[in-house]
Design a protein around this nucleic acid. Structure first.
Lengths: 203, 203
DNA sequence: CTGTTTATTGTCCTTTAGTTCAATGGCACA
DNA sequence: TGTGCCATTGAACTAAAGGACAATAAACAG
């Protein structure tokens, strides 16, 4: 059973916390934090961010709560190590959902904020190649269309034979495209290919 | 009861879909879509995005599935109207979570991808997310300690020979552990292993 | 028209991966 | 003291992957 700890000033607390998690602790500081698995921290000023950062150093899950949801505060909270960002007056069912997602190593954001954040950040992502396992650059845009098609299917777990069937070419051709993809991306085999493809950010 | 519909080519389907939602329809096109409340659509090429956009015009919830998670594809999918973006080999517990979040008008993104997006704007170095070994390795918990050790090294791109050297055992023993790990996790080879491990947050 | 890139395929070969059939020793639990 | 699980290894095998060394054809730029 996950032990939840809510940290917030006495005058900014919600009965929904206890409704969602009947066994939860509710406190005004972090003194009890060792007994908790999941800490919900109300963010108001910079001091709270300091606490958030130090709590995030531990292996415990930290969820930031806010009085007013803003994209910028969400970004800061997540950057400081929070696994979730939610309004402090969220209804119990939402709180439970947040807890579930976070417990599963996920990250939680409200839909609107998420959309906003994703659309904003992803668009500003430069097409910078990420580093491959051996330290050299990897850039999927170097691949021809066929090489990319083969690489994607291979990286999805297909065998050469399956890729060949799907693209209606021979297995030999699959190997050819794959080989040149390996060379261009500077990886040694299909497993490293899937690692760099899932680690890099550009299709 | 929510009716789920999974749309994907016959050769890129996962038994986990039916495991997560026993009453789900699984189809290769969108003909049955009127009967569904929640549509899971595998994205491969531009045609799939066209379909996604038209499905998103309806009031139904659309979740994009991918062979390889990338920031850019995620952005496009969400922009096109998807409410979630998830790897097609995600384990049932993750699929259920996605469905729950989406059903509650939320939006779902994998934690790694999300953190990547967040950090893209925040140029500072974050407190690295401590990925506890007792997190959500639903599948991985079935493995013995040696099987897990081998599986993790293999999923990091090591060959059997390298794993053998590292663990100071013979290559034959590596194969033994790996074979039983395949059986327990119900995957057919090392590439699917790395896919399900990364899809379930195990690495 | 010529050189280049891309896509396609072939054969032959070596190396990895993975399975099937085992066996041995340790350790915990009833 | 069995019984079962785990770790370890072996031999022999099939299948898959990947490289070496090619060729042919289409598309395209200069």
């Amino acid at each position: 059973m996950t032990q939840h700890l809510f940290i917030a000033p006495a005058d900014i607390q919600s009965p929904r916390w206890q409704q969602a998690f009947p066994t939860a602790f509710i406190a005004q500081d972090a003194t009890q934090f060792v007994q908790a698995d999941c800490v919900w921290l109300l963010l108001r000023d910079d001091n709270d961010f300091v606490l958030l950062r130090s709590l995030a150093q531990t292996s415990k899950k930290i969820i930031a709560m806010t009085l007013i949801e803003t994209a910028e505060q969400a970004r800061q909270a997540l950057e400081a190590g929070a696994s979730g960002y939610v309004h402090y007056l969220a209804v119990p069912v939402v709180l439970e959902q947040v807890a579930q997602v976070v417990a599963a190593n996920g990250m939680w954001l409200g839909a609107d904020l998420m959309r906003q954040l994703v659309l904003a950040t992803a668009r500003s992502l430069p097409a910078t190649p990420t580093k491959s396992l051996n330290g050299t650059k990897v850039d999927l845009s170097q691949l021809t269309s066929r090489e990319l098609a083969v690489a994607q299917l291979v990286a999805a777990g297909k065998t050469n034979k399956e890729v060949a069937r799907e693209l209606d070419i021979t297995e030999r051709t699959v190997k050819a495209h794959l080989g040149s993809a390996f060379e261009k991306l500077n990886v040694r085999d299909r497993l490293h290919l899937v690692l760099v493809m899932s680690a890099s950010g550009g299709i």
